[in-house]
Simulated assay, not measured.
Amino acid sequence: MNLDLKDKVVVITGPAKGMGRAVTLAFAREGAHLVLAGRDTAAIDDVAAELNAMNTEVLVVSCDITRSEQAERLAKETLARFDRIDVLVNVAGGSGPIGKTGWETTQAEFDDIVQLNMTGCFNTMRAVMPAMIERCAGKIVNVGGTFGMRGRAGRMAYSASKWGLRGITKSFALEAGSYGINVNCVAPGMVDGPRFRDKVCANMADKLGISPEEAAIRHAEDYALKRVSTDNDIANACLFLASDVARQITGVDLPVDGGWALL
């Protein structure tokens, strides 16, 4: 299937590693022009080098998405280089405290993750919207999480931030629909990688006195398909929602979780 993403201008936040890197490379393989945004541009160097080897046109922008003025500068630099913004993919985010109850979570921990996972996405969405409205076209894909659909004990702050992102996504979708702009949310479950192995599995292993590998297996058993998602699973969902194949889909949460949110 041709997703017709060649030469589209795609802004990606959090592109350096994990899901962000997979999303970045997936769009590059489709022939898109890429704008990669992150606080630490040095961390983006490796993926930028891969893109250069693929002959992908790429712009790297230093941007703290929790700062509205920096998100606005990101949009301005993109427009100065490419004259339009076709797609925004908000991957940047954090996990917040793991294994803490709501009453053990500090206000600082709660504020930090809400600021990153909610306010950060709001800032970038708000910044690119005028350019998309002017052209009456655009796709926004936010990477949320299934803990923002069902909740999760020990992950209250993260869950709250992803529930909030769903509300932002749906409201923007309703407001921007008349301008031909689609706004959707990909909701990963557990995604295999360093964060999953070193934090989530390690936390379960410590609590239950089992190995991290046994913890990973226990997580997989929670899912209908009995397997944990990969970065590429998330990337493929982002490609779909950023393409005109999904032209009639907006305001949705798309779980990519092997069947956990439905259980």
Rank of each mutant, 00 (worst) to 15 (best):
E77G: 03
A137F: 15
E213S: 09
V23Q: 14
W260G: 08
A205W: 00
E175P: 08
D192R: 15
G14N: 07
V23Y: 10
G151H: 15
G145E: 01
N52F: 10
E109F: 07
P212L: 12
R73I: 02
L241G: 03
F27M: 12
D40C: 10
F147G: 14
C238T: 13
V47K: 05
F196D: 10
L165S: 07
G177A: 12
S211Q: 13
N184Y: 05
K170S: 13
I113G: 00
R150W: 06
R247D: 14
P255L: 04
D257Y: 03
D46F: 06
G144E: 00
C136D: 11
T119H: 10
E69V: 13
R84L: 01
G99S: 09
S178R: 14
E214W: 08
I133P: 08
I98C: 12
S229D: 12
V143G: 06
W260P: 01
A22M: 02
G259H: 07
G102S: 06
V9S: 02
K6H: 09
R150A: 04
R218Y: 03
V47D: 03
D253Q: 14
A37I: 01
S171W: 06
E30F: 03
E72I: 13
F27G: 05
A246T: 13
T78V: 04
A246L: 11
K8G: 08
D64R: 13
S62Q: 12
P255Y: 06
R150L: 07
G148T: 01
G102I: 09
T66I: 15
I234D: 10
R84A: 07
V143W: 00
E30S: 12
E221Q: 14
T101K: 14
T146H: 00
I133Y: 10
S171H: 07
A137Q: 15
S171C: 02
L263A: 12
I44K: 00
T66R: 11
L36V: 07
G102N: 11
